[in-house]
Protein backbone atom coordinates (compact mmCIF):
# COMPACT_ATOMS: atom_id res chain seq x y z
CA UNK A 1 0.00 0.00 0.00
CA UNK A 2 1.80 3.05 -1.32
CA UNK A 3 1.03 6.26 0.58
CA UNK A 4 2.85 9.61 0.40
CA UNK A 5 2.51 12.07 3.25
CA UNK A 6 3.76 15.51 4.18
CA UNK A 7 2.75 18.32 6.50
CA UNK A 8 1.31 21.42 4.86
CA UNK A 9 -0.03 24.21 7.12
CA UNK A 10 -2.34 22.60 9.70
CA UNK A 11 -2.79 19.45 7.61
CA UNK A 12 -0.96 16.20 7.24
CA UNK A 13 -1.74 15.52 3.55
CA UNK A 14 -1.78 11.79 2.74
CA UNK A 15 -2.00 10.81 -0.94
CA UNK A 16 -3.00 7.20 -1.71
CA UNK A 17 -0.88 6.08 -4.68
CA UNK A 18 -3.06 3.06 -5.46
CA UNK A 19 -6.02 2.57 -7.77
CA UNK A 20 -8.08 0.63 -5.21
CA UNK A 21 -8.68 0.13 -1.49
CA UNK A 22 -10.41 -3.25 -1.38
CA UNK A 23 -10.75 -6.32 0.82
CA UNK A 24 -7.28 -7.48 -0.31
CA UNK A 25 -5.64 -4.19 0.77
CA UNK A 26 -7.83 -2.69 3.52
CA UNK A 27 -5.77 -3.96 6.45
CA UNK A 28 -2.50 -2.76 4.89
CA UNK A 29 -4.10 0.62 4.20
CA UNK A 30 -5.15 1.01 7.83
CA UNK A 31 -1.73 -0.11 9.13
CA UNK A 32 0.14 2.27 6.79
CA UNK A 33 -2.18 5.12 7.82
CA UNK A 34 -1.47 4.31 11.48
CA UNK A 35 2.26 4.71 10.73
CA UNK A 36 2.09 7.92 8.68
CA UNK A 37 -0.37 9.52 11.12
CA UNK A 38 2.31 9.44 13.80
CA UNK A 39 3.62 12.67 12.20
CA UNK A 40 1.91 15.35 14.29
CA UNK A 41 -0.66 17.72 12.72
CA UNK A 42 -3.94 19.38 13.68
CA UNK A 43 -5.89 17.68 10.86
CA UNK A 44 -5.39 14.96 8.26
CA UNK A 45 -6.43 15.28 4.60
CA UNK A 46 -6.74 11.98 2.74
CA UNK A 47 -6.25 12.45 -1.01
CA UNK A 48 -8.21 9.68 -2.79
CA UNK A 49 -7.94 11.15 -6.29
CA UNK A 50 -6.03 8.12 -7.65
CA UNK A 51 -8.40 5.59 -6.06
CA UNK A 52 -10.88 4.43 -8.71
CA UNK A 53 -12.50 1.75 -6.54
CA UNK A 54 -13.28 1.21 -2.87
CA UNK A 55 -15.43 -1.61 -1.47
CA UNK A 56 -17.12 -1.91 1.92
CA UNK A 57 -13.88 -3.23 3.47
CA UNK A 58 -12.06 -0.16 2.16
CA UNK A 59 -14.82 2.07 3.48
CA UNK A 60 -14.57 0.35 6.87
CA UNK A 61 -10.81 0.98 6.86
CA UNK A 62 -11.30 4.72 6.18
CA UNK A 63 -13.79 4.86 9.07
CA UNK A 64 -11.28 2.93 11.19
CA UNK A 65 -8.59 5.50 10.39
CA UNK A 66 -10.92 8.28 11.42
CA UNK A 67 -11.47 6.55 14.75
CA UNK A 68 -7.79 5.89 15.39
CA UNK A 69 -7.02 9.59 14.85
CA UNK A 70 -9.33 10.33 17.79
CA UNK A 71 -11.97 13.01 18.32
CA UNK A 72 -9.53 15.96 18.34
CA UNK A 73 -7.84 15.29 14.99
CA UNK A 74 -10.21 15.55 12.07
CA UNK A 75 -9.96 13.41 8.92
CA UNK A 76 -11.02 15.22 5.75
CA UNK A 77 -11.29 13.60 2.32
CA UNK A 78 -10.39 14.96 -1.09
CA UNK A 79 -10.70 13.82 -4.70
CA UNK A 80 -13.41 11.13 -4.57
CA UNK A 81 -13.70 9.48 -7.99
CA UNK A 82 -17.27 8.62 -9.16
CA UNK A 83 -17.48 5.02 -7.90
CA UNK A 84 -15.83 5.88 -4.57
CA UNK A 85 -18.23 8.83 -4.15
CA UNK A 86 -21.15 6.47 -4.83
CA UNK A 87 -20.10 4.13 -1.99
CA UNK A 88 -19.84 7.06 0.44
CA UNK A 89 -23.20 8.45 -0.71
CA UNK A 90 -25.15 5.18 -0.60
CA UNK A 91 -23.90 4.35 2.90
CA UNK A 92 -24.52 7.95 4.11
CA UNK A 93 -20.84 8.15 5.09
CA UNK A 94 -20.71 11.37 3.06
CA UNK A 95 -22.51 12.95 6.04
CA UNK A 96 -19.75 11.89 8.44
CA UNK A 97 -16.69 13.25 6.62
CA UNK A 98 -15.89 16.69 5.26
CA UNK A 99 -15.35 15.92 1.57
CA UNK A 100 -13.47 18.50 -0.51
CA UNK A 101 -13.99 18.53 -4.28
CA UNK A 102 -10.92 20.74 -4.71
CA UNK A 103 -7.77 20.85 -2.61
CA UNK A 104 -8.33 23.16 0.37
CA UNK A 105 -6.59 26.52 -0.19
CA UNK A 106 -2.82 26.43 -0.40
CA UNK A 107 -2.51 22.63 -0.23
CA UNK A 108 -1.13 20.32 -2.89
CA UNK A 109 -0.91 16.56 -3.27
CA UNK A 110 1.73 14.82 -1.22
CA UNK A 111 4.52 13.29 -3.27
Amino acid sequence: MNLSANVQNAYLVVTVNEDRIDAAGAIQFKERMREVAQTPSDRVLLDLSQVAFLDSSGLGAVVGVMKLLGPDRKLDLFGLTPTVAKVFRLTRMDTVFTIHSTMPGGLRQAS
Partner: peptide, 24 residues
Protein backbone atom coordinates in the same frame (compact mmCIF):
# COMPACT_ATOMS: atom_id res chain seq x y z
CA UNK B 1 -30.19 -2.73 6.63
CA UNK B 2 -27.90 0.28 6.66
CA UNK B 3 -26.08 0.33 10.02
CA UNK B 4 -27.06 3.36 12.12
CA UNK B 5 -24.67 6.26 11.62
CA UNK B 6 -24.38 8.31 14.76
CA UNK B 7 -21.32 10.52 14.88
CA UNK B 8 -21.64 10.85 18.65
CA UNK B 9 -21.41 7.05 19.08
CA UNK B 10 -19.16 4.38 17.66
CA UNK B 11 -19.33 4.52 13.86
CA UNK B 12 -19.78 1.22 12.00
CA UNK B 13 -16.75 -0.18 10.16
CA UNK B 14 -18.69 -2.97 8.47
CA UNK B 15 -22.15 -4.28 7.74
CA UNK B 16 -22.54 -2.27 4.53
CA UNK B 17 -22.15 -5.10 2.02
CA UNK B 18 -25.67 -6.48 1.81
CA UNK B 19 -27.15 -3.01 2.03
CA UNK B 20 -25.14 -2.03 -1.06
CA UNK B 21 -26.08 -5.23 -2.93
CA UNK B 22 -29.79 -4.94 -2.16
CA UNK B 23 -29.80 -1.24 -3.07
CA UNK B 24 -28.06 -1.69 -6.41
Amino acid sequence: KLPPIDTTADLPEGGFGWYLIRTL
